[in-house]
């Protein structure tokens, strides 16, 4: 399912003394099967965009097209449930949304709200719990008896069980330790690859964006600052640094090498392995001289 944002603007508390412009003139194209990363500082408008992707917010100007639904400020929309089933959102710290007595019931909650039968929901729960790397015997436990990391996975399973066409992730690894962070990201990446699940990742981590995404949007002060493939985005990292954003460690290191050696590598390397090869080749050339 494709999602299209066309010149979207959103104002919080419009027409009150507290009115605040959150995003303006945002146009983003998310064709089916894309892995898109949205990057920017806190307050750059990332979360506002995210909430437009399944009509939690309606644009105050411009339009959002989700599949065959068009959402604008004028139209009163009914049947947004369709949209919400197809676009699953994993919010930041999703473990805060758990509420049922057992893990199984919590995972089934989403699907059953969308009219899936209980048996089918339970079947999906068993699949989803394995997808997030937990064992089935956890299904009978209370979500509140689990560790923080397990709760996070259960909450993610609850969204996966809705079997959405698009999954939107808001800082899914915030607060996890390095191992947990890696496991969760690898899982989403695998889902994206195996099922061609469209994925939108809102993140601060340039590492994750460059490693997993095939399109990156950089947000700054509510506007799209830049969009493109990771190669395009990071080939000129100076602009990003001016905005006070990080660049991936690899890119930063490549710059340092280029500066010290006063030369340029043919392209921007996005993985440590790539860069290692380039550097090794370079140093070996030196040795042969």
């Amino acid at each position: 399912m494709d999602i299209l944002l066309q010149q979207v603007e959103y104002r919080y508390q419009a027409n009150t003394p507290f009115e605040r412009l959150a995003i303006k003139d945002v146009s983003i194209d998310i064709p089916s099967g894309t892995f898109l990363a949205i990057i920017g500082h806190t307050g750059s408008g990332k979360s506002t965009i995210l909430q437009h992707l399944n009509a939690l917010l309606k644009p105050t100007a411009g339009k959002v097209i989700i599949g065959d639904k068009e959402i604008t400020s004028e139209k009163k929309q009914k049947n947004l449930k369709d949209v919400r089933q197809k676009v699953g959102i994993v919010f930041q710290f999703p473990e805060h949304q758990l509420f049922e007595e057992t893990v199984e019931r919590d995972i089934c909650f989403g699907p059953m709200n969308f009219g899936i039968s209980e048996d089918e929901a339970k079947r999906r729960a068993r699949i989803a719990i394995r997808q997030v790397g937990l064992s089935e015997d956890i299904l009978a436990k209370s979500p509140f008896d689990l560790s923080g990391g397990q709760m996070r996975r259960v909450a993610i399973a609850g969204v996966l069980a809705m079997e959405p066409d698009v999954i939107v992730l808001d800082e899914p690894t915030a607060g996890l330790d390095p191992r947990g962070r890696k496991e969760i990201m690898e899982m989403f990446h695998a889902l994206h690859q195996e099922r061609k699940l469209s994925t939108v990742l809102v993140t601060h981590s340039m590492e994750d964006a460059s490693r997993y995404a095939d399109q990156i949007v950089i947000m700054h002060h509510g506007e799209v600052y830049k969009k493109g493939t990771p190669e395009e985005i990071f080939s000129s990292p100076e602009g990003l640094m001016e905005l006070g954003l990080d660049v991936p460690e690899v890119v930063r290191f490549q710059q340092k090498i280029e500066k010290a050696f006063q030369m340029n590598f043919p392209k921007t390397c996005l993985s440590v392995e790539q860069l290692t090869e380039e550097i090794a080749a370079l140093v070996k050339r030196g040795e042969q001289r």
Partner: peptide
């Protein structure tokens, strides 16, 4: 935040019969 998260999971806080809406309060 929680309202939005549950809305995304298919809960309808704003319309539907009173009984349904009362149930929506639990999550």
């Amino acid at each position: 935040k929680i309202m939005k998260a549950q809305t995304a999971r298919g809960v309808d806080f704003t319309s539907g019969p009173i009984k349904e809406r009362m149930k929506a309060i639990i999550p």
